[in-house]
Amino acid sequence: MSSLEIRDLHVAIGEKPIVKSLSLTINPGEVHAIMGPNGTGKSTLAKAIAGHPDYTITQGDVLLGGKSILEQEPDERARAGIFLAFQYPSEIPGVSIANFLRAAVQARMGEGEELDATAYYKRLYQKMDLLKIDRKFTSRSVNEGFSGGEKKRCEILQMAMLEPRFALMDETDSGLDIDALRIVAEGVNTLRGPGLGVMLITHYQRLLEYIVPDFVHVMYDGRIVKSGDKSLALELESRGYDWVKQELAVA
């Protein structure tokens, strides 16, 4: 079984260590929620795994199906099955969603293989309908002028089209009203299955009411300090992050 294995990972931005000795294994089919206060390294973890050039991995390893991905470029990691759903998706003026996704789908095809345009559009429209995205969006520029909810739905649309093995979802719930949150969660839930592992980064327990995790990890100061099942999220919600900090201080 191919899993995403994070081993003793240390990540720095410039000289500043952010993630400090973090280990976590995500198996296909599992949803792991990573919770924690702001500035604790959750987003850094996700971006570093995706290969963002601003983040330096100073120690440890990330393995996909037993193979290290650290020497791979971001696009190679993506084609190997890693998908990062951005907290703040980029706006790309002049590049339509249809062209963007076509390039991404094409990048996954073999040399000389031709994209079947009819089948591609059929699949695209089907996924858009599922996510309640107006079909007119295909000709709109990627994320340009989108509301917060539209941007996040567009991230899920990309995920649905690219069918990753592991999705790293960075604060997918931030900036969403409850209706948008429901649509996004519904989208993620339809993609859930034995072929997909999910790392769900969130600050709030609210999202976990809609996407019920198999595991919950609390991250603090660059490492995972507590792990449990979904009840841990509820406990965090009622007792707050100070509870974790105090526990750590005692230990």
């Binding site: 290969g51 963002h52 050039p53 470029e73 971001p74 696009d75 993506a78 980029s90 990048a107 990309q158």
Partner: peptide, 12 residues
Amino acid sequence: QLFYLESRGISP
């Protein structure tokens, strides 16, 4: 923007 596109598997 470049990283965003690359993170979708599109070559540089």
